[in-house]
């Protein structure tokens, strides 16, 4: 039996070696090379001393933070009210359905909505504000990114709320706590694990949504993901691209350390949801 089991593991172990360890080592190695393939620390020096790169990283971090806050503010009440409805499974499927529509299509919809003579501008003209430049602005990027991320924030929070024992809430009310006190002292602390999972699921992908910045933000919004894409696909400076990649990986570890419950990303949230249903 032991032999059979080891035999089972061969393809899987080969996968770990080739597609988990090797890529990480390669991106780290690449970040220490210049375009001629020689070892150098130059990429990190450039990154650390160039205002452009530092500003871009801070911006990217700031945008991801804003997106996370906006989605959290919208999603927490949604998840809470959702847990109180009848036919929860149906509602939940309605939340999941948009995540099955390809992200590019959803982004594309906003190109139409936000264009110079698009529906949003027609509405703005109708109410007397007049047409505005909506596409290729910071706020449109924030809006579209938040729109895409909302379901991934709702689902983990919802899971945490339905696991909350209603007896605790009743006990708190019986003991004379107001609704707000109950929320602040009982409900929110006990569902914090869901919030943390949601923050992870939204924050990390928000650092790397390069397709949305390209299509909606024009070239005004540059995030870490956009910079990596540009260095790899356009300017072909893989060394610098890898350096930014390493920075992104470090940021990811910081976020995971701060929200240390469990590591989750879109995919895991979706997978959890499939298990739940």
């Amino acid at each position: 039996m032991k032999k059979t089991r080891s035999f089972f593991m061969i393809p899987y172990l080969a996968w770990i070696l080739l597609f988990v360890l090797a890529p990480l080592i390669l991106i780290l190695y690449q970040s220490f090379t210049n375009s001629a393939g020689q070892f150098t620390l130059q990429n990190y020096v450039t990154y650390g001393t160039s205002w452009v790169y530092l500003k871009m990283s801070l911006n990217s971090f700031w945008y991801a933070l804003l997106i996370t806050i906006v989605t959290l503010l919208i999603s927490y009440p949604t998840a809470y009210f959702l847990s109180k409805t009848k036919r929860q499974q149906l509602w939940l499927l309605l939340i999941i359905l948009p995540t099955w529509i390809n992200l590019l299509l959803k982004t594309y919809a906003f190109i139409g909505l936000f264009s110079q003579t698009g529906s949003v501008n027609q509405f703005l003209t109708f109410v007397g504000i007049g047409p505005k430049q909506l596409l290729f602005s910071d706020s449109s990027f924030l809006l579209v990114a938040s729109y895409i991320e909302i379901p991934f924030m709702i689902l983990p929070i919802y899971n945490a709320i339905v696991q909350l024992d209603p007896a605790l809430v009743n006990a708190s009310r019986d003991l004379g706590a107001t609704n707000f006190q109950t929320f602040r002292k009982v409900i929110f602390p006990l569902t914090l694990s869901g919030v943390k999972a949601g923050v992870q699921a939204v924050f990390i992908p928000s650092l790397s949504l390069f397709m949305v910045t390209r299509l909606i933000g024009g070239n005004r919004v540059i995030t870490l993901g956009t910079a990596i894409e540009e260095h790899f696909m356009t300017t072909m400076n893989w060394g610098m691209g890898s350096t930014i990649g390493v920075i992104l990986i470090v940021m990811m570890f910081i976020i995971m350390f701060l929200t240390n419950d469990r590591k989750k990303k879109h995919r895991e949230v979706m997978a959890d949801e499939k298990e739940t249903l």
Partner: peptide, 23 residues
Amino acid sequence: LLTLNNVLMVSPDVIIGASFLIL
């Protein structure tokens, strides 16, 4: 083994794409 398994689940898509391209 489980930690190694989860590396690709948590890394951003751009990192996966870029590092596979190098590979």
